[in-house]
Design a protein around this nucleic acid. Sequence first.
DNA 1: CGGTTTATTGATTCCCGTCAAGCAAGGTGG
DNA 2: CCACCTTGCTTGACGGGAATCAATAAACCG
Lengths: 251, 251
Amino acid sequence: MNTRRKSPVNIISTEVHHCSMDLRLKILGRLPFFIDLNPSELMMINQRFNSLGFKKDEFIYYSGDPAERMFVVAEGKIKLFQPGFERRNVLLNILLEGDLFGNLTVFGSSTYTDTAQSLTSSCILSISSQSFGEILKEFPSLAIKSLQVMEKRLIAANKRVFEISTLPAEKRIVVTLLTLVEKVGKQTNQGVLIDAPISREDLAEMTATTPETVSRVMSQFQSSGVIESGRKWISIVDWDAFQQLANVESP
Amino acid sequence: MNTRRKSPVNIISTEVHHCSMDLRLKILGRLPFFIDLNPSELMMINQRFNSLGFKKDEFIYYSGDPAERMFVVAEGKIKLFQPGFERRNVLLNILLEGDLFGNLTVFGSSTYTDTAQSLTSSCILSISSQSFGEILKEFPSLAIKSLQVMEKRLIAANKRVFEISTLPAEKRIVVTLLTLVEKVGKQTNQGVLIDAPISREDLAEMTATTPETVSRVMSQFQSSGVIESGRKWISIVDWDAFQQLANVESP
DNA sequence: CGGTTTATTGATTCCCGTCAAGCAAGGTGG
DNA sequence: CCACCTTGCTTGACGGGAATCAATAAACCG
């Protein structure tokens, strides 16, 4: 059945990216965030940013570090998580090109409350919270956009609290896979691929279960022909059947 | 042991409040949010607000309603929750005097994602999202403050995801009681009272458990002399012992 | 003071976490 | 390019923590 042995997930490359100036300008200009600015304003803002490359699995910052910068994903995929005792982490979010993270609030918190790790090799732009604050004051519409970014995440976090609180493990895994598809889903000739290197353990950390439970649930889905998956990759081959599984009418 | 039969929690009164103009001005002026504004600016902003009284248990808005207003608690206590199937709600937050809720983001979401209900009789100020947006544009520092409010809540929501995911039921209940104490704790001659009408079911909805489990855990705490409690009230009588319970070193 | 809501407690069931062993995939170096 | 080693996935057996069902008791309210 599964003729694909190699993982179909693109992890870009194993080398470190270092973003050129014009790549940075293009990235920033494309962001919904900065899209209303004119070229000269954009240029000025661009100058306040640093860029830095990260290898696969490298850490960008750790929970507890002083929260002095705001980051933007220029290329690659980043995961945010809260480290727990004995490898019991909780995965909070997976970020893509254009997503903001770090300290978005100028003076809000003194230390990061999560850890940021690069899932693929990546290029990250960053700006000091102070400079970001100055930009927000100069362009109030940007502050409102930041507010909307935060609201979206708060709603997602609350949705997740709801799901963990009310759904059994299997449904939690299904709805989590669905949000992953919405975020990084890619149509391929073998179904909808979740285009990020997500392990069973990652899924467990997203769904408040264990890798073993995730494995059992996934095995069942595979044997019923709904998904295909392997080492750090998942593809949904029978979309209709999959949505059936997510039907959250009866808990 | 428990000589107190009546609930010590003050639910203000059963009558509807209607905030007078000068009460409103005082409330708004006291908010960290508006504290930097001068009296005339404050007056101008005050005019954009409506005020409305709610009885105990009355609903302010429902999940799914069009999200057209931003609210401020002037007096009373409000709970926000996500309604689930078959009474399986999830309690998201308890709000006090000065707290903002509703649509804080001007244009962010089209409908409320939670339901707001008055725990006590209360007085609520509100403003249209559009007017609020105009104010934010006029006073960029307010937008940054909104951002910080949102960040704080996002961090709290993530912390809760972490707790639900990693802690056993008893510890979840303890840490939840601790956050309630931080929020509405009141020193009395019989220990630290949680000054809000919180039922076993409310606690269950906050901790992803059931009323029965909460009751069992609370009974144990009562028999070991750490807390006293009754119908919709909880008081921590042995603070040191209670903090021991919250020691989150070994899961 | 009766009716309703909330809390307590017990008995039972079961989902899922834990422990453990075996296997497959992927990367590495000769 | 293949043997080796590491890392991640699978599967089974078992036990425990908490949900469910149910019946009683206490507190509150009109």
